[in-house]
């Protein structure tokens, strides 16, 4: 910052602190403060300012509380126009049904078509089952075990809304006009086109969204966050709050991507990822084996191939009985 700018912004800051800034000046200051260095300088000035006679430090308000207070004042059905069109749509649907009624009687009665928002499609996986599913808009979903995905009639025409229970990996087809939404508890996840993993069965009881490409928006009725590539969005169901973590665990979505990146992991950690992806169980005949460290990368490899590499690296043998794989070897120091 040159000295002219410096003088200008000191004047602007002073005017702002005096409560004399016009909206345009407050906006200009706000823009200027987007720079962290400027924000730091402003904090310093503010600290001095608050010490000067006639001044007091401003209270720090609770945004969440303020939002709740505001939300309570908003009209509950703040969309009269939409309600109207919705009612007309039902009227139209009712009219069509009335018109079709004689025809329906005439033809042999068959099961009635489901109403517009009933569930049209459900895919479920049981224990140990991993199922790839492609839905009408071309989106590829890999369902992890004990998971369910549902969507309604009108999918890909009226909306692209699905409901999820459990865990699934999504590779969403790009369509800016119909955003893809996933509802899970009271959380909504919205995307345009991207790939990411959602699970609501984390050990901590949170809902996690791991974004592998593109950008995902997570929101509830009180909060919203954007989750960029290589980040994890976390919804704390207990506290009903959303936050962002700066990393993703690529190996936790290997059941769908079939890609593993083991960077100096213990054998135990690596095996846990393999267990999740291939629905198998590992057991070590020497407990010390679990603590060995290993680095490896596999893209789209079969389980026997991966086991071969592991055995060669760790100097172990593996035996498979059903879903149980026993690793035997000397272990590490």
């Amino acid at each position: 910052m040159n000295s002219n700018d410096h003088i200008m912004f000191t004047e602007l800051i002073t005017k702002y602190l005096c409560g004399d800034a016009t909206p345009a000046e407050a906006l200009a200051l706000d823009d200027w403060l987007a720079d962290p260095e400027n924000a730091r300088q402003f904090r310093q000035i503010r600290q001095l300012w608050d010490q000067l006679p006639g001044n007091a430090a401003p209270p720090v308000p609770d945004a969440q509380q303020a939002w709740e207070a505001l939300n309570a004042q908003l009209p509950p059905a703040g969309k009269p126009a939409r309600l109207l069109t919705l009612r007309y749509r039902w009227l139209a649907a009712a009219a069509i049904l009335l018109l079709l009624l004689p025809l329906w009687w005439f033809l042999k009665p068959s099961p009635v078509q489901p109403p517009a928002n009933s569930i049209a499609y459900t895919a479920t996986t049981g224990a140990g089952e991993i199922k790839p599913v492609t839905i009408p808009d071309g989106t590829a979903i890999t369902l992890h075990h004990n998971s369910t995905i549902t969507y309604s009639t009108g999918f890909n025409q009226l909306d692209r809304a699905v409901q999820l229970r459990g865990e699934a990996y999504f590779d969403v087809t790009h369509n800016t006009q119909l955003p893809f939404t996933i509802s899970i508890a009271d959380l909504t996840i919205q995307v345009v086109g991207t790939s990411f993993n959602v699970r609501d069965i984390t050990p901590s009881g949170n809902i996690e969204v791991q974004v592998l490409s593109g950008m995902v928006k997570m929101f509830t009725s009180t909060q919203a966050i954007m989750v960029p590539k290589d980040h994890t969005g976390i919804y704390d169901v207990q506290k009903r709050s959303l936050y962002l973590a700066g990393t993703i665990d690529v190996n936790s979505v290997s059941y769908a991507t079939k890609s593993f990146q083991f960077n100096d992991l213990t054998v135990q950690e690596a095996c846990q990822y393999l267990e999740k992806a291939f629905n198998i169980q590992f057991q070590f005949d020497q407990p010390s084996l679990a603590g060995c460290r290993l680095s490896a990368r596999f893209d789209n490899r079969t389980l026997p191939y991966i086991l071969n590499i592991l055995n060669a690296t760790l100097n172990t043998n593996s035996r498979r009985q059903g879903n149980l794989i026993t690793l035997s070897g000397k272990g590490c120091e």
């Binding site: 702002y16 602190l17 005096c18 409560g19 800034a21 407050a26 706000d30 401003p58 209270p59 308000p61 945004a63 303020a66 939002w67 505001l70 703040g78 919205q190 928006k217 929101f219 009180t222 909060q223 919203a224």
Partner: peptide, 21 residues
């Protein structure tokens, strides 16, 4: 509506600071 809520969270503190000043 979602945008509205985002706006609130993005600007609440700044607007409060401005009003308070």
């Amino acid at each position: 509506e979602a945008h509205y809520q985002q706006c609130f969270h993005a600007y609440f503190e700044k607007l409060f600071g401005y009003a308070w000043s």
